[in-house]
């Protein structure tokens, strides 16, 4: 193919990518270094934008609400990543080992939630959590546990449950796909060498699953850090959530309710940086271990 032809084929994607991925990031970056000043009484005489250096970053990082949300989301990701990786791997190994009946039914029912939008899932789970309509709280209180599943301490876990419910079946399929690409002859060789079911899982399947597990880890890190839909939908019914519960919620709130786009941009950039450091850091870490 000639280079001119290739350029024509590439152009639509490159233009859209530049316009809707690269430009917004650059715009946010530029905006995060500015401050809008309103002049005159009540800012009625118009406003001007000037360079503010790192002022917005300072403001974000000295705001206890934002810093707390950052800490909370890091804790959330630290629990979610191993939970998701172990959960999806265990489900896939059990299903693929052929130990249970009706594997197709189980695979479909585990995967089903992936097709449901996060906000719809949150509406459903919201009813299942809310004190008046929950089928769980009466059962728990029969065991002597009086709890509000949307209360200050518990809502953290309730949100986590929604996300696990949505995505663990999808990630399970990623692992299943990788498992099915392992050549049958490897299993036979291992069996001849006297390996049992556990030996095969531990020595052959898990090491060869590495690419799938890396993929799941990276996407779970990214997804966890930008948690937004679930807490936003539960916000009106939960006493344990606030508009600064996660960094993305904080940025959204500062942008549209606080009308401070520059601060919101700085907060988004900080979150993107943390995400990049963690996901690229993880990729480098596993890349090094391989050599």
């Amino acid at each position: 193919m000639r280079k001119r032809t290739a350029a024509v084929f590439l152009a639509p994607f490159v233009l859209l990518f530049a316009g809707f991925f690269v430009a917004p990031i650059l715009y946010a970056l530029a905006q995060s270094f500015t401050v809008v000043e309103r002049s005159g009484l009540l800012g009625l005489r118009g406003q001007s934008t000037r360079f503010a250096g790192l002022a917005n970053y300072g403001k974000a990082l000295s705001d206890p609400g934002f810093v707390e949300s950052l800490g909370r989301i890091l804790l959330y990701a630290a629990i979610m990543v191993p939970l998701m990786v172990v959960g999806s791997t265990v489900l896939a190994l059990i299903l693929e080992a052929g130990m249970a009946r009706w594997p197709r039914f189980f695979r479909t029912s585990f995967f089903l939630p992936y097709g449901i939008p996060g906000v719809i899932a949150s509406i459903m789970w919201g009813f299942l959590y809310a004190p008046g309509t929950s089928p769980f709280t009466p059962v728990l209180s029969a065991f002597g546990i009086e709890t509000d599943l949307l209360g200050p301490g518990t809502v953290f876990w309730s949100v986590m449950n929604i996300v696990v419910w949505l995505f663990v079946g999808y990630n399970m399929l990623v692992v299943v796909a990788q498992l099915q690409s392992i050549p049958r002859t490897l299993y036979e060789a291992a069996r001849i060498d006297g390996a049992g079911r556990w030996g095969i899982a531990w020595r052959i399947q898990i090491p060869l699953l590495r690419p799938a597990l890396v993929l799941i880890t990276v996407f779970t890190i990214i997804g966890s850090l930008q948690l937004f839909n679930e807490p936003l939908v539960l916000l009106p019914v939960s006493g344990g959530l606030s508009t600064t519960y996660t960094p993305t919620l904080t940025a959204y709130h500062d942008a549209f309710n606080g009308n401070d786009m520059a601060l919101a941009a700085a907060e988004s950039i900080i979150l993107a940086l943390v995400t990049a450091v963690l996901s690229f850091g993880f990729l480098r870490f596993v890349g090094r271990g391989r050599r």
Partner: peptide
């Protein structure tokens, strides 16, 4: 290089893009 930039786009949080995209 172009391919790697595009792949990095997968890793970008969509919420970080959303707010500035609204202004644009």
């Amino acid at each position: 290089a172009l391919f790697n930039v595009i792949l990095a786009g997968v890793l970008l949080p969509t919420t970080a893009i959303g707010l500035p995209l609204f202004l644009l």
